[in-house]
Design a binder for these strands. Sequence first.
DNA 1: CGATTGACGTACG
DNA 2: TCGTACGCCAATC
Length: 113
Amino acid sequence: MERDKNDFFNNVYAVVRLVPHGRVTSYGAIARYLGTGKSSRMVGWAMNQCHGLADPVPAHRVVNRLGQLTGKAHFGGGNEMQRLLEAEGIVVENDAIVAFRQLFWDPSEALEI
DNA sequence: CGATTGACGTACG
DNA sequence: TCGTACGCCAATC
């Protein structure tokens, strides 16, 4: 099969959309699940392009491994990302997700590899 | 066309 | 334990 890098981006969007409501995941988790491992940066790059997609990608559910809303600046420059997370019942404090480890959703685990 | 940046993560000192 | 360096790959300057 031809796994183009374009598919990688598409795969990232697919995984992010699979994130359950009220759950969050990390860039590295997705990258690892896709097999890219260290290419976690590309996941963030994919999120950057997700704004132009017709279907809304819950990028607000994707944070870094520390649970910090590192990409909140790309949600309109406001606290929109935090607001979206709180709307799902996720407690966000100081631009960081509380009990992140508890809310963490690992695709490798959820999809059972 | 070459150098730099970027929504990260891991490795090494 | 904390701090710094590197890798990754694509897009932008």
